[in-house]
Design a protein around this nucleic acid. Sequence first.
DNA 1: TATGTGTTATAGTTGAAGTATAACAACAAA
DNA 2: TTTGTTGTTATACTTCAACTATAACACATA
Lengths: 130, 130
Amino acid sequence: MFLSLDFESEVPIYQQIRLQVIQGIASRALAPGESLPSVRQLASEIGVNLHTVNKAYQILRDEGFVVIHRQRGVLIAEHPCPPDLAGYLDDLKSRFAQLVAEAKALGIKPDQIRKLFVEASGFRLQASDS
Amino acid sequence: MFLSLDFESEVPIYQQIRLQVIQGIASRALAPGESLPSVRQLASEIGVNLHTVNKAYQILRDEGFVVIHRQRGVLIAEHPCPPDLAGYLDDLKSRFAQLVAEAKALGIKPDQIRKLFVEASGFRLQASDS
DNA sequence: TATGTGTTATAGTTGAAGTATAACAACAAA
DNA sequence: TTTGTTGTTATACTTCAACTATAACACATA
């Protein structure tokens, strides 16, 4: 599979799995309706326990990224959506604010912060373009 | 002091301290050269152990936010700056990218993501304004 | 019936987070 | 000199998250 794990990282394995599945959805590498490996299959593939993979899948389900059918397995949701949209947007805004505050506190110029955001997001600055 | 801690949070106490000091610097509530409470003083104030506060201070020092003098205590750096600027910028960009990827994967429209970033940062969209 | 899903239960190891005490080194002030 | 304050270090302990290991269960399908 497409996963690359770092067992030395301070980021828990189940979080690394979660993050990369999310990246896969965002980059269209994982399409709606597509099935993920079973918990046992993925666990065996990456050399971790069944429960570690299961934890990642449970969180992805709770967050609205995937749906889980008892026999069909774990599928990318047709239209991924957070259960509490307003709450999610508030939270996302807070996380943006924390990143920006940290950069500001370290003397990074607003122009550069904006530039990093644009590069990271692929968005154009101006509303005139896509 | 200005700290508000949540002992029920999954975010470690030393991280909460760190985050709020950073916010204080970014918001100018904490000025360069200003001194923070001593480890014992702050620990007693918020009802935690000396080592928990010390851990937060050590990290803030390693990240370039504060300087620590053995007797003068902990001071906000005159010009806070990450020890490895290039590495920090790369990391910041990755963190932006992860937030954006997550929002995209959840079907949040680019316009709304951009709007949240603008609101969170206080920046204007266009380069024409400050 | 056999196999492959996710799910649940139990028990154990490892390491981070936090606490509790104590002591040390360095400087400032009484 | 003595006292007090600073950060620092050391040790030991508790609690809990992360992860592992095994086993069993419920459900659907081939």
